[in-house]
């Protein structure tokens, strides 16, 4: 009944019960928000005890290293997200609408894949697509070549391909959920009216999947901007992203202030993408299923 839905558990609660939120909130504040604030302070030069200034920002943000890092991050994130959307859509359509033996198991395995460490894919790609990997060895054997013909792994394409593999399941989850809401009768009627499969996909399935695609895509964008393990494992010299740059500055060069400046930009970018994601999910009325 509508009447039931209106009354929430906290309806008859005293204000003092609100205070129960404080312990977890304080823990989060001390271990997460406080360190983030200190990053910002150090980036603004507060750590040396002097007045806050934007000098460090001016120096770092105009440096070639930062501009390249930002460009790489964005190019990789956008390309990987686009790839995830296309691949995720295709694979989801296969699983949901052209059932084949094992398709339901695959749908469940997707959840498992999400929990695997991201660098696993990068590591395996070195065995498959590396200069001495399976693909190159096969091609060299078949065509009697002396040099490995496939050489994309140690460029941004290697990173992009790895990220597409790793993050496609994050697009498939909301997609499969939204596909399960499409009535099979709708597709049957369409095909009985003579619509071909591709037309059904473009006219019925794609529009229904749009909210899930937008939500999954913005989540992918967020995760790929933040990705670190894959970039580190691929280890290509000229593919430095913002997270890798932070690691480089702080751990290899002990330049904490520069690292903090870059971290402020990176965190800002991530929070903007996170807001976009929350907005998209709220706008389309879905639950936050994708992020958890």
């Amino acid at each position: 009944m509508a009447e039931l839905a209106l009354a929430l558990p906290g309806q008859a609660s005293a204000p003092s019960r609100s205070a129960w939120i404080l312990p977890p909130l304080l823990i989060l504040a001390a271990l997460f928000f406080f360190p983030l604030a200190l990053i910002a302070r150090q980036a603004l030069g507060g750590a040396e005890g002097g007045a806050l200034s934007l000098n460090h920002f001016a120096t770092v943000l105009t440096s070639k290293m930062f501009v390249d890092g930002l460009r790489n991050t964005l190019v990789i994130a956008l390309s990987a997200t686009a790839g995830c959307l296309v691949l995720g859509f295709v694979l989801s359509v296969f699983i949901a609408f052209t059932p084949f033996p094992g398709s339901s198991i695959l749908a469940r395995l997707i959840d498992t894949f999400i929990a695997l460490p991201t660098f696993l894919v990068a590591l395996s790609f070195t065995f498959i697509y590396g200069s001495a990997g399976m693909l190159n060895e096969s091609l060299m054997e078949i065509f009697h070549l002396d040099l490995p013909p496939v050489d994309f792994l140690y460029s941004q394409w290697g990173v992009i391909l790895s990220e597409i593999t790793v993050y496609t399941p994050f697009v498939m989850r909301p997609l499969l959920a939204s596909f399960s809401l499409i009535e099979p009768a709708q597709l049957e009627v369409a095909s009985s009216l003579g619509a071909r499969p591709l037309r059904i996909v473009s006219r019925i399935i794609l529009p229904a999947a749009l909210p899930a695609l937008v939500a999954g895509g913005s989540l992918c964008l967020l995760l790929t901007v933040n990705e670190f393990g894959i970039v580190l494992f691929i280890g290509a010299k000229d593919v430095i992203t913002l997270p890798l740059l932070i690691y480089d500055k702080a751990i290899q060069q002990f330049d904490y202030t520069t690292a903090c400046v870059i971290a402020v930009v990176n965190v800002g970018l991530s929070l903007a993408l996170y807001s976009l994601y929350r907005f998209v999910v709220a706008y389309f009325g879905g639950r936050r299923a994708g992020l958890v």
Binding site: F32, P35, F228, I246, Y247, A250, Y256, V267, L271, Y274
Partner: peptide
């Protein structure tokens, strides 16, 4: 929010 922030920055924050 912690799930949205890059892990490297979380580590950097703790270090600082």
């Amino acid at each position: 929010i912690p799930s949205a922030v890059p892990s490297v920055s979380v580590g950097l924050g703790l270090l600082v």
